[in-house]
Design a protein around this nucleic acid. Structure first.
Lengths: 208, 208
DNA sequence: GGTGTTGAAGCACGTTCGTGCTAAAAACTA
DNA sequence: TAGTTTTTAGCACGAACGTGCTTCAACACC
């Protein structure tokens, strides 16, 4: 039988090469040749694991979604374990939302890749399904968070949806700015904006 | 003398062709050949007006910034003319913020192009200067708006900056979602999120 | 110790890209 | 009408792209 290679691990190696290229040079530079070089393989080898360029990209998109979703999920369980309204829960919420932002090297790479694929999905139909999944997954977590944080409890459904979308939009905007204008949108500014938004969650639905 | 052609108008024609291509096929398809085809010209003709592909892209980026800045500026003067706190001012503010979003065909094209160039600027150094200008220009308008809407008047400088960045992030996130997930982020949802955010502006700084 | 399956490598083909360069065409002046 | 200069068109070159297909090397099993 053939040389034994952990195919799944090798696929992940290639995917990580894709991540590095997207983060440093953009999605359009993630060609088979560049990816093979970055992974230390030949083009034919990459194509042995991924039938086509599209398959590689779709798989990479899925991988980054899984990474982000995993982080969000584990951070969310921490939030749900803390007692509502406690400072510990506040911290857990801030930590959860921080998972969206490029606060360290690993998060930055994932954020870059995530953004690049989502925008590419507007044009490339092969990526559309994963983009849908990405949106649904993240929106579900944010929705649960909003439900948990809403003081009104059984508040109007409409308000909850709106607030979830509002938080989601703010997070994506923050992520964007942190990636594109890092000199303005520092980690401190991100934190300030997040706490301001969370304060606005406490205030508004009650006042309505 | 030669055939008389309004060079500036012709450059704008080419730029509009760039816009259409970016909106429908993405920035990476905005090659000289595609642009020339879309504009109904030969590649040589496009290169007569723009020395290089880079020059064309930088000029197009600048053009879309100017369009957006112009719309924001004129909408901002309306806001400043209305009496503070009046329903007319509220409507003017909503109108101003709506200029960021792809609410009609023209706005959608500009939003697409704007997003594409800003993300491309992370990678392509030639676009960096215009990206800076874009951010400064828009941040200035949003800053003026926040200053106008803040009930505290001479509130803490820090709060104003934070709130400006928060509104900016929310707008960019809304724009992103409206472009990438139009089925979820409808015009109505945009409006709901915007009004919710504006309510949060009234409430929070006063409560602090 | 052969042997055949499989990982790895690479060639070849057709496209597309940016760009330097050369002419043809067009239109206003002399 | 002849000339001059801008506008338009197009060819040619090197580089990079995805992909079909072939070739080489290695290793587990009979």
């Amino acid at each position: 039988m053939p040389k034994i290679v952990d195919a799944e691990a090798r696929r992940l190696d290639v995917v990580h090469a894709v991540f590095r290229i997207i983060a440093s040079d953009g999605l359009e530079r993630a060609s088979l040749r560049e990816v093979a070089d970055e992974a230390g393989l030949a083009v034919g080898s990459v194509r042995h694991y991924f039938a086509s360029s599209d398959e590689l990209l779709v798989f990479s998109f899925g991988a980054v979604i899984d990474r982000i979703a995993g982080r969000l999920e584990s951070a969310m369980t921490v939030v749900e374990e803390e007692s509502p309204g406690s400072p510990e829960q506040q911290a857990a919420v801030l930590n959860l939302l921080g998972q969206f932002l490029p606060l360290d090297e690993e998060l930055a790479v994932d954020a870059c890749v995530w953004m690049a694929f989502r925008h590419a999905a507007r044009i490339k139909p092969v990526l559309a399904a994963e983009a849908e999944r990405s949106h649904r997954t993240v929106a579900a977590v944010v929705g649960r968070l909003i439900m948990l944080l809403s003081p009104g409890g059984a508040d109007a459904q409409q308000t909850l949806v709106t607030e979830a979308e509002r938080l989601l939009a703010t997070m994506d905007g923050l992520c964007m700015h942190a990636l594109l204008q890092p000199e303005w949108m520092t980690a401190e500014m991100c934190s300030d904006v997040l706490t301001a938004h969370l304060r606005s969650l406490d205030g508004v639905p009650a006042a309505r």
